[in-house]
Design a protein around this nucleic acid. Structure first.
Length: 591
RNA sequence: GGACCCGUAGCUCAACUGGAUAGAGCACUCGCCUUCUAAGCGAGAUGUUGCAGGUUCAAGUCCUGCCGGGUCCA
């Protein structure tokens, strides 16, 4: 139970008490009542909108309602003052001991401080990356990968039972094309073709996936099968070579993800769903609901209907579920559309018990969102929810200069390049410093800079500073027990400076930050929270430069020193806990 | 033509999902190292939240219509 929910309960109790004596009308809903840190610290410790929310349903003036509530709050335990301000806010001040108690809580709970039961163990499926198995991951994938992973960790900290999943698009034309490219490289490995032949074919558009990475795979294939596929006809060799290629690509992708510290639990193959007839079943069931019909779509407006032909096809009534038009389930050749197999896939997730699904996609799939959400509504009879988080693109810079990428030559910046250049932790943190639907600039020079401008460095520095103090503390306070459990016994009433109390308030709002970030699906809020907390720590540290009394370690005041150590140790714990959600290692020393 | 996302200080971005006087960093000016890492800290200045309406006690946030940028459209 964190301070804010405790106070909110006090407020609700106060309201109910007034209701019971007839001071307020009965039947008031307190769901919209909040208890939060006011933006301006001079407004007190905690402020509530209770009076303004209740004024209308109670048919009373906000300030009148506020007076009723304030009268009750003033006699409540731990509340120093409660004042009415502005249009009807109630500003509450708490006993310092309330905040000081938070430090003890953190020291006892460790990095589990901030854990919440908000999700009540309900199942959530987070699907992310899901890159086509046709090559190594590149920068664009990195953002979705890190975002999805952090969101999963965040939800899990907020009490949801999270499954991290990857959908393998191994049934489309791309993997056939991959198989052709691998076959070419295989011929090259056997000496039947030259690299020049390959380059020429790639230039002519006859073969895709010109990156070097298939060479090793081709060699492995040749080692395993020898010249088995040399004379085989196209039909005969396609499936086995494709399977070999997909396995190799998925191994590579898993390695790439592992470098980022990402391990997903479930990998679902599109082909396996198709082969098992799951698409037929899913569409059949929709058909039974009367949601599938054969019809003719209007041509897209404003586009030249050059190759447009009005043709009857199998359609899904997406427009009944919020989409703009109905969507085709079958292509002209009679095979399922991607949408059809995606419906089957989401049906599969729903059948596995996930009524809440989160898909992390690149922004270029934005046009697909409504259709998929319509599909999920239909296949789950309205019981399933699909949230789609679109990640905008990442622009790479080096010292302000854009880094050019070319997919055509196969020389795009890979995830590996990125990690090799700046390290896993920097990649992860920086990718989370922006809202997912905002474009992100990644500057190689800036993200490794050692300055306040670089949030990774700044937060890590705060953590390292705290450990530095503890290294010195073993000398200054020789013989004292500096363990967390011992520090939890420190006399925290000795930490009563306004700046120290402000740090405690920030720490106290960590559980709330987790909950609001989880509800909003916005891990970036944690990055900003950590940055602010780091700033407070650096500020407190520097108070010691101006005023020796404010230094954390005072040789002649061991009790006060222990209290301050307890405080900054709790800051370190919260920073570590935040970085843990991000999958970033907190450092104990800057090098 | 339509759909989705974005538009906040000179620049890069926040704003606790509707709360009080819209905040940080960079850049600019000034101050702080005999000290636990100055790789840092403090102070000053910066706004018609793209434009116009609407909803209400309260709008950067929600609704409508425009303008500009991006993405997508069998």
């Amino acid at each position: 139970m964190n301070v804010f929910s405790t106070i909110k309960e006090l407020i609700v109790e106060a309201i109910n008490a007034e209701v019971s004596v007839g001071g307020l009308p009965s039947g008031l809903k307190t769901g919209a009542v909040t208890a939060e840190l006011p933006r301006d610290a001079s407004h007190g410790d905690i402020s509530t909108n209770a009076a303004m929310v209740l004024a209308k349903p109670a048919q009373m003036k906000p300030r009148y309602v506020a007076e009723k509530i304030v009268g009750r709050l003033l006699v409540a335990d731990g509340i120093v003052s409660a004042e009415i301000a502005g249009p009807g806010f109630i500003n509450i001040r708490l006993e310092p001991s309330r905040w000081q108690g938070v430090v003890r809580e953190v020291l006892k709970a460790g990095v589990t401080f901030g854990d919440s039961n908000l999700g009540q163990d309900s199942l959530v499926n987070v699907e992310y990356v899901s890159a086509n198995p046709t090559g190594p991951l590149h920068v664009g994938h990195a953002r979705g990968a890190v975002f999805g992973d952090a969101l999963a960790a965040l939800l899990s900290k907020a009490g949801y039972a999270v499954t991290k999943e990857y959908y393998i698009n191994d049934a489309g034309a791309q993997v056939d094309s991959l198989a052709r490219a691998l076959h070419f490289r295989y011929l090259e490995a056997l000496g039947e073709k030259t690299p020049e032949d390959f380059a020429a074919a790639a230039e002519a558009g006859e073969v895709e996936y010109a990156g070097e990475y298939l060479k090793g795979v081709a060699k492995a294939l040749a080692d395993r099968d020898g010249d088995k596929w040399l004379g085989a006809d196209t039909e005969g060799r396609l499936a086995p070579i494709r399977a070999f290629a997909i396995d190799a690509m998925m191994d590579m992708i898993r390695d790439d993800l592992a470098m980022l510290g990402i391990v997903q639990e479930v990998f679902t193959s599109e082909r396996s769903l198709v082969d098992a007839g799951r698409v037929d079943v899913a569409i059949d069931d929709l058909e039974k609901e009367g949601l599938v019909y054969t019809g003719v779509l209007e041509p897209p407006k404003g586009k030249k209907p050059d190759d447009w032909e009005a043709r009857p096809q199998l359609l899904f009534k997406a427009s009944e579920f919020g989409d703009d038009i109905d969507r085709p389930f079958k292509k002209s050749d009679g095979s399922w559309t991607y949408f059809a197999s995606d419906v089957a896939y989401h049906r599969d997730k729903f059948d596995r018990g996930f009524s809440e699904m989160i898909d992390v996609w690149g922004a270029d799939h934005g046009g697909y969102v409504k259709r998929m959400q319509a599909g999920v509504k239909a296949l789950s009879a309205g019981k399933g929810t699909l949230h789609v988080k679109l990640c905008q693109l990442v622009r790479l810079f080096d010292n302000g200069e854009p880094v050019r990428m070319s997919k055509r030559t196969g020389k795009f910046v890979t995830l590996r390049d990125l990690i090799d250049a700046v390290g896993k932790d920097v990649v992860r943190f920086i990718m989370l410093t922006r809202k997912n639907d905002a474009q992100l600039d990644f500057d190689f020079a800036k993200v490794t800079e050692k300055s306040r401008d670089n949030p990774v460095f700044y937060v890590q520095y705060a953590h390292a500073r705290i450990h530095s103090v503890f290294r010195h503390a073993t000398e200054v306070l020789a013989g004292k027990d500096l363990s967390d459990s011992s520090l939890a016994q420190a006399d925290l009433s000795l930490c009563s400076d306004p700046d120290e109390l402000a740090v405690m308030r920030s720490i106290a709002s960590w559980p709330r930050t987790i909950e609001t970030a989880a509800l909003a699906h916005e891990p970036h809020r944690i990055a900003f929270y950590l940055y602010d907390l780091a700033a407070q720590l650096h500020g407190l540290w520097n108070r010691g430069n101006d005023d020796a009394e404010m230094r954390f370690l005072l040789a002649d005041e061991p009790e006060r020193s222990l209290a301050r150590l307890a405080l900054i140790r709790s800051v370190a714990v919260v920073i570590a806990s935040g970085l843990d959600v991000f999958g970033v290692e907190p450092v104990k020393e800057m090098r």
